[in-house]
């Protein structure tokens, strides 16, 4: 049976469908939205995609994606260089940054230790983290990996590799969510909240 759609449309649908969280139906809808939109709108999107890789560098210090080297956070002399927050990926960094509660610097691992996905410690930027700490300006490493088995494995690896170094290594607290009702919290979270309780 011949494809009822023009080849250019089919090609776009195929490319869109390769993106995460986008299935064939969504890809079709997006393709037709772009087809019906003005030509300039489609071109703007196309240029943004085409130039995505050109303007981006990886910051030599924190390994985050940035417009220039070093990135704005690493270049900001107002920030506390003694505090280093280690995150799994740039979106985690953005979440912590947007919270406004942290004024130190970051280190992006670009993943977490995950045997199921074949990711080991050597596939992350842990060696670069150790180098940064060895340079001596860092007083505390805050491990902000996800509260998953993979995040725990990564945190433990970092903790072990930093053992013996003159830095404090901490992990983000776990427990009740703000606005949460204890009645509906699962047992594992309650147990962790009890473990991590604090003096009033």
């Amino acid at each position: 049976m011949a494809d009822p759609l023009p080849r250019a449309v089919t090609r776009l649908i195929d490319e869109l469908a390769r993106l995460p969280t986008i299935g064939p139906k969504t890809a079709q809808r997006l393709a037709f939205f772009l087809l019906r939109a003005s030509s300039s709108q489609a071109q703007t999107l196309g240029r943004a995609v085409a130039s995505l890789h050109d303007g981006i560098v990886t910051c030599g210090q924190c390994r985050n994606y940035a417009d220039a080297e070093p990135c704005t956070i690493c270049a900001d002399g107002e920030r506390n260089a003694a505090l280093l927050c280690v995150v799994e990926d740039p979106l985690d960094l953005a979440a912590i940054e947007n919270s406004g509660g942290f004024a130190g610097r970051y280190h992006v691992l670009h993943g977490a230790i995950s045997p199921l996905e074949g990711i080991g410690p050597d596939d992350l930027t842990i060696d670069l983290l150790l180098e940064r700490v060895a340079r001596g300006a860092v007083g505390e490493v805050i491990v902000a990996t996800n509260a998953t088995i993979e995040g725990d494995a990564t945190a433990m690896e970092i903790g072990q590799r930093l053992r013996g170094q003159p830095v404090r290594v901490t992990r983000l607290a776990r427990g009740l969510a703000t606005g949460g009702d204890i009645e509906y919290v699962d047992a594992a979270t309650i147990a962790q909240a009890l473990e991590g309780r604090r003096e009033l």
Binding site: I113, P115, G118, G120, P121, M156, Q160
Partner: peptide, 13 residues
């Protein structure tokens, strides 16, 4: 691939 010491975490878990 990898180092046997990576097993430490999973053993403990």
């Amino acid at each position: 691939v990898g180092r046997p010491s990576e097993l430490g975490f999973w053993d403990e878990k």
